[in-house]
């Protein structure tokens, strides 16, 4: 029985049964919708005006920040282009609502009101206004389950915004919503208050979304790794409005050229290097016996790699310009 479930033969059955369960979610969500509706209907005019004014102010501030961000983004992409690692993310988002949470307090999963009919797919990233929330775990016809980044079975590849140190953030094993950074060595530069952003390493999450803030770093000299805890930025327990990210990565052409160019250059180097190495070892072995001519055969061995590197650098400069 369980072999079936493990190998996923029953995805289709689950999907089909999902049609039957949708009305239950729909009815279970009625109280929330009614309370929202009541909030919407019974609100005074002055409250609305006040809120409107506040929102306008916020919008102004946000627009100003957006302008700054745009200039920064273009500058950043130019710099990245120079570094041959240009990767522009212009993901589109689809708004969704969290309509339920997992009844099991030890698995941190939530249900959203978008399913396969809206184009949701497994592995899609979910964010809220403050940061990364999780990824789509299971898609049903009109709903889908999201595995939050605070689940014990979930690991998020992150990097520190300040210095680019990479780490893996794992959810906590108890009911609290805390992230633990795994395999952080004692010497890695991490401080409480550092912002963790997604590094895009696992190819699941888009790069550079804010994930968490480091709350405590404890380096015990007796342990192999430091204990680093972080607090997720997304409002895991209180938010209802979330966004699904449709990632739309555009890879700028220079990178493609270099990716294509590298495999051609690399084998040539490798072909030469082992030959040199074997020649070296042979000569040193002879040199130990003879004692005289150890230094002389090394000179061509060093000269050859430098010749190889030079054309590659010039090629890079050409593509960059």
């Amino acid at each position: 029985m369980f072999a079936d479930y493990r190998f996923g033969y029953l995805e289709r059955v689950r999907f089909g049964l999902g049609y039957f369960t949708t009305p239950v979610y729909w009815v279970a969500d009625i109280p929330t919708r009614v309370s929202f509706w009541i909030d919407d209907v019974f609100v005074s005019r002055t409250d609305l005006l006040e809120e409107n004014e506040n929102l306008r102010e916020e919008l102004l501030v946000a627009q100003r920040e957006l302008q700054l961000l745009e200039s920064l983004a273009s500058e950043n992409s130019r710099l990245l282009e120079l570094q041959e690692a240009a990767e522009v993310i212009e993901g589109e988002v689809m708004p969704a609502e969290i309509i339920n949470v997992s009844p099991d307090p030890y698995s941190k999963r939530v249900l959203i009101n978008k399913g396969s009919t809206d184009g949701v797919f497994v592995g899609q990233a979910l964010i809220d206004a403050n940061g990364l929330m999780g990824q789509v775990d299971e898609v049903l016809p009109y709903t889908s389950w999201i595995l939050l980044i605070t689940d014990a079975n979930h690991v998020t590849p992150v990097e520190i915004n300040r210095n680019g140190e990479r780490a893996l953030a794992r959810g906590s094993r108890d009911t609290s919503s805390v992230l633990e950074l795994q395999f952080v060595t004692q010497t890695q530069d991490m401080l409480a208050g550092d912002l963790l952003v997604s590094s895009g390493m696992g190819q699941v999450y888009p790069k550079n979304y804010p994930v968490a803030e480091v709350t405590s770093v404890y380096a015990d000299p007796g342990q192999d790794f430091a204990t680093v805890r972080a607090r997720p930025l997304a409002a895991m327990a209180s938010t209802r409005h979330v966004m699904l990210v449709f990632e739309d990565e555009e890879v700028i052409t220079p990178e493609v050229d270099i990716l294509l160019a590298e495999p051609i250059d690399m084998p040539a180097q490798e072909d030469v290097a082992p030959a040199d190495g074997s020649a070296d070892s042979d000569t040193t072995a002879q040199g130990e016996q003879s004692g005289d001519a150890t230094a002389q055969p090394d000179i061509p061995a060093i000269a050859e790699p430098t010749e190889q590197v030079e054309p590659e650098q010039s090629a890079v400069q050409d593509t960059g310009a």
């Binding site: 029953l10 049964l17 039957f20 369960t21 099991d104």
Partner: peptide, 17 residues
Amino acid sequence: GLLLDILEGSTLGLNAM
């Protein structure tokens, strides 16, 4: 049980069993 599994998003057959 199967329907409850789908609803809770647990492994299919868990509550059924």
